[in-house]
Write a protein that binds this DNA or RNA. Structure first.
Lengths: 206, 206
DNA sequence: AACTGACCATTTAAACAAATCGGTCAGAAA
DNA sequence: TTTCTGACCGATTTGTTTAAATGGTCAGTT
């Protein structure tokens, strides 16, 4: 028996990559299954052998990206022992992921089209995974006596919503105009400042 | 000479009120100048005697509401001496204004249409006025030694952006569905929690 | 098991006509 | 003069029809 000579990427992965590329270029709504098939020099019907429909293909692309981010995030954080520093690192990593999604066109002015239930569920699940990680950080801070949080779930939700909110405001402000590096620096600065104040708020002792 | 028997509201104010009502019912884009004129039993051309164009009429409606909010806000805050409490009261008042705007349909799912420059400027000016008020609160806290803010402008901007972000996320989450009182309670709770942590963050002492 | 061309129902795009829109203006009404 | 109006204009929006493209299926080939 011979092992694969070339790393022989799975066909489904090839489709996933092509879809990711074209979705990034034109947006999911403006990319047809025919275009994806042509890009791969295969029949459109073949796509349906690997993915039940377009929505699930899009979902798979999104979840692939989410899984990649969550992996790097967990690896980056588990090395660190100080919960305050972990929180800062989360904010930084999350911002990188945000930039990545914006550069790819996955989010931004052109992503108004209401996400259908299936995709919305993916986002929801992703946020819950994020929340779990932040909760672990908060609990570590709690048990070490550094943080004072009555309810880690609520505080984690609040922190994530604040971060999400700042990104949302940022996108709103930069609507129509393209985003340059200077804009990102401002956002980074604001996110860092918010995280710092938040951490101090958790460390406050009367 | 006889003083006005009836309080005789200015004609421009009558137009303003009718426009406010109809803009609230159908949205500014879906309300025609003809409808406003008909509602007042006057000619459409008459509207243009009092307002140069539709955009400026809409702007006047918005600025009227903004001025009302800023008035109540300043009155509510100037009585209070504790800056932390003032910040909490700002958050509360701002939330009421937000609810008012949502109930009126001024903001929400149906307000996607990009605000034209003139209106955008109104919003920008309004935010600057808000910022000034928050900065005054922060400076009071600074000079009394309760708050520690390196840069009141930046911190005020951050606080306002966090509040704005939480409202934005709230609207995103409640997209399509109508908002009930329970939802507002959740938002109020989150806004209050964020304000508390923010205040503690400003009061933190190493 | 992996893949395809031909096919279908539904959605979207294009094109054109008709209605409606915001806005103007000469002049009537007060 | 100040306030108001009907008639009118170019531009935008809307309605309608027709053609093309799209997501998805399936019998059958490789």
């Amino acid at each position: 028996m011979v092992t694969d000579r070339e790393p022989k990427e799975d066909k489904a992965d090839l489709i996933l990559s092509a879809a990711q590329k074209l979705f990034g270029l034109y947006g999911a709504e403006k990319t047809s299954m025919r275009e994806i098939a042509d890009d791969l020099h295969m029949s459109k019907a073949s796509l349906y052998y690997y993915f039940p429909d377009k929505e699930n293909l899009y979902k798979a692309v999104i979840e692939k990206e989410q899984a990649e981010f969550l992996d790097t995030l967990e690896k980056d954080i588990q090395d660190n022992t100080d919960p305050a520093e972990s929180l800062r690192r989360y904010a930084l990593n999350r911002l990188s992921y945000f930039k990545y999604l914006v550069n790819l066109g996955r989010i931004g002015p052109a992503s108004i089209p209401d996400f259908k239930p299936l995709i919305a569920d993916s986002f929801k699940a992703f946020r819950e995974k994020e929340k779990k990680i932040v909760m672990q950080i908060l609990e570590k801070g709690e048990s070490s006596g550094q943080f004072k949080t009555n309810n880690t779930y609520e505080v984690a939700t609040l922190f994530l919503d604040i971060m999400r909110g700042l990104r949302s405001i940022f996108l709103n402000n930069k609507k129509l105009f393209s985003i340059n590096d200077e804009d990102y620096k401002q956002l980074s600065h604001q996110v860092a400042a918010a995280t710092d104040i938040f951490i101090k708020g958790l460390m406050y002792k009367e």
